[in-house]
Design a protein around this nucleic acid. Structure first.
Lengths: 154, 154
DNA sequence: CTTAGTGCAAAGCTTTTGCACTGCA
DNA sequence: TGCAGTGCAAAAGCTTTGCACTAAG
């Protein structure tokens, strides 16, 4: 069991919860696909390869648990599906979810927190609202698709 | 029929669609509540007061239509419900959805586009991604709740 | 008149829940 | 061994769809 899973076991123990094979496999499925944004059904299909008897309800129960534990992040990319991705432990709690969604190829890119430097402070000064978390989505065209678009229009 | 509804009628005609009492009432329900974020069910309940025989399916079909026509905006405030609000005609197409959600009182506040000045350009320069629309949510504490929190902790 | 739009009910999906059985601690 | 966790199936929501009827243009 690697570091991530040992850490997970400790976190579970701290909550008085048990470490099950199912929980390990579900977390591994997401941890092994850091760039993907998976639906519950997709996670179910992946996990079934290693543990065919797992029930969809178990997947739902555990992605909810993992989300509560902040080990995975819940995403809404605007396509009508609820999706999940492994949380980046380097990111401070409450600072995730920055996606650029290409309207042409559907690719989902992430961008760094640093681009928002000063924005939360600006909001606080202007509106009095103190930001503790945020979720940002930008729709547009990725570098490649934008290039194609520009070429076609010229 | 006021300006908004006459405009709506023209837009429908341009699409070869008919103006029905139901459509007018649904749009009015949202137009008359510019600060609210209503679910399909809530819209249904409001509309039924004026047109008791309306079916829920008609509400769903028409909020989808209104959304396609950019007369209303679809929101996801993170509470598990899909919500709708009247679109602000002053805002340029593709620039809406800026909400601050108070984690204490649940209040949803809006903030202006101007706070994001330069951000899209910054993204383009840094990542090559050309932004054409965005949806931003900030979770935190509104001025009033933040004040109470600060008082209690001092 | 023509055909888009409506209301109703049924169907479809995703997600949750109840319950007896299983297996971790 | 005790109780949390699981698998299964049923239930619960929300949303969409099929169809006969209605009404807008």
């Amino acid at each position: 069991m690697n570091d991530r899973m040992e850490q997970f076991t400790l976190l579970l123990k701290a909550r008085g919860l048990k470490t099950t094979k199912q929980r390990l496999i579900i977390l591994e499925a997401l941890a092994g696909r850091p760039q993907e944004h998976l639906t519950a059904e997709e996670i179910y299909d992946i996990v079934k390869e290693e543990w065919p008897n797992i029930g969809l309800a178990t997947v739902y129960r555990n992605i909810q648990l993992l989300s509560d534990m902040h080990l995975i992040d819940k995403l809404n990319l605007g396509d009508g599906y609820v999706r999940y991705e492994i949380a980046d432990p380097r990111e401070e709690s409450g600072h995730h979810h920055h996606h650029m969604i290409c309207l042409s190829c559907g690719k989902v890119l992430a961008f760094g927190e640093d681009l928002l430097d000063g924005l939360e402070e600006k909001i606080r000064k202007t509106t009095g609202f103190v930001v503790s978390d945020h979720e940002l989505k930008f729709y547009g065209y990725c570098r490649e698709c934008e290039q194609k678009r520009t070429e076609n229009n010229s």
